[in-house]
Write a protein that binds this DNA or RNA. Sequence first.
DNA 1: TTGAAAGCGCTAACAT
DNA 2: ATGTTAGCGCTTTCAA
Lengths: 347, 347
Amino acid sequence: MSEEKHVPRAEQRRLQMADIARLAGVSVSTVSRALNGSTLVNPETRQRVADLARSLNYSINLSAQNLRLQKNRTIAVVVPYDADSRQHISDPFFLSIVGAIADALTDRGYDMLLQRVDAEHLDQAAHAVDSGKAAGLLIIGQWRHHDQLNELAARKLPVVVWGAQLPQQLYCSVGGDNVLGGRLATEHMLSLGRRRIAFLGDAELPEVMHRREGYWQALRAAGLAPDPALELPAPFEVSMARQQMLDFFDAHRDINAVVACSDLLALQSLQVLRALGRRVPEEVAVMGYDDMPLAAYSDPPLSSVHQPVSKAGAELVEALLKMLEGERLAPIMLPVHLSLRASAPAR
Amino acid sequence: MSEEKHVPRAEQRRLQMADIARLAGVSVSTVSRALNGSTLVNPETRQRVADLARSLNYSINLSAQNLRLQKNRTIAVVVPYDADSRQHISDPFFLSIVGAIADALTDRGYDMLLQRVDAEHLDQAAHAVDSGKAAGLLIIGQWRHHDQLNELAARKLPVVVWGAQLPQQLYCSVGGDNVLGGRLATEHMLSLGRRRIAFLGDAELPEVMHRREGYWQALRAAGLAPDPALELPAPFEVSMARQQMLDFFDAHRDINAVVACSDLLALQSLQVLRALGRRVPEEVAVMGYDDMPLAAYSDPPLSSVHQPVSKAGAELVEALLKMLEGERLAPIMLPVHLSLRASAPAR
DNA sequence: TTGAAAGCGCTAACAT
DNA sequence: ATGTTAGCGCTTTCAA
């Protein structure tokens, strides 16, 4: 009765525009126009097509659309991992910033592709854009590869990086004010009368380097010389840090304050100090970094440098979308402040 | 000198196979075969093409490839949100399961699309598959819409849901053993000699319902009748729960144990109980659920029902990929166990 | 206001 | 071992 092409089986072939067109008794062009809200189509036709599409759960094939339009509304979010330790996404701060970005992208009508890449090869992140999967890149952290990020920017890839602002930086970054954070934390310890202040964090990472800079600034302003023996380059992955921290605090019994570069590190040091029989905050005051919600529940409740996570997500997204519009952007620095609790109480 | 088509401007047009072909002096088919590792191509040609592609940062256009191949290697991960409270991704448990899924998908060579949808319209998640953006769906939580999930499954969409196993379930689910978790938590409180055990959680959510079932089982096995007055249907978003919890614990001074349905709720109750001057665990023992790493640092350290997050991510992914191979799968239940700490110590 | 037809970049059947 | 060619499903010019 009909001359339809042979349909393979009962197995449901995926619906396409031609099907909607046939059922609506119009051409595919009209369906395309209707579904894209073109004014060139009769309102009642448009309605009929729209209803039909909805009732059949038809959605425009995005591979075809992207191919034809040569663009897409997907952003790749790249969370680097440490290839040596095969470390998985675990730092709650990174996870929460991913959540904030997801919300911001959803608000703007963009899809988010979440990718893991080896932190030693941040340049691999470019693949998502080169292959047309994503329109732009959001990279969480600079790690040790400022140079690779510069190469991405030199290739004119739309990329925004969460991290510190560095000299000779070709890419746009968004980050907290790390120097200020390190300084505020240290000044607070000084105001508590502490003079032997330890610094926990791997200063090979740009953000940590800036926090240490702030730590130094505060010490010097108080007439103290930074003592390298009080700096522990603890890795981000806390499980590896425990033994180091035990040895460190055991070897330096004069330490009476700790400025840590993540809440995880600070929480770990709380435990280690307790294991060594040192009382917090009476003998040793402890300050974390990031101010994760759960950290407020620690024993004792953790003081921390607050980073504006949800604002960070929004700024990263806004910066990248502006860049996609062709705008050139300067690095952005977000304010930080102290959240004081019992581990390093207000005076 | 050449008859190349007019190239619009100095502005870099995106590289494509034809460019590589021209530069390598072969046809596009050969490039396609070389890049896809076909054995039909001369090894040395293949090497030349591969080198050329890499040196020019060429990546196959995935929209075109997906269109042609009628498939893709992307999985959509759906994290529902509460539209009323405009609540964002914040529960650390969901975030950590997203991280675990990201790792598992990366291991399998799949991309992950992270999507937020209104928890009242889980069916909207289907769009990612209908539009060909993703091959399958991983939905985090059933919320109140078992029915909508069944509809997705009835449409033969490849979908796996994190959550409880329910009667008349058409979709594949992966989840912790919630009845066991509720029972273990409650039995432990009973073994501590507690008889007035509160249950915190909204039993309209399937997982919570099962945990309450386990809680009831343990009570009955001990010869106690469940007392509805001891059940507080606290919402997942803790900020809303605080006042409720204050009133609740104040109205029931006889409560000497708390079984909470998330670590967040448990941590919140720790604070509320302290505000009411009740000592934990001496007067009231508290048990959380999920056993998030940061919860171990609370004051006092939180006991919790441990859920195997990274295993959960791996199982969700494996189940979905099997389903994409055409396998039919039964729901999967993962073991849980208690992590005992000071808030509800071992006897 | 609508339809016909070309082509986005790729793969694979077919030809050589 | 390599090339030619026909679409994958869509948007958009062009023609009516």
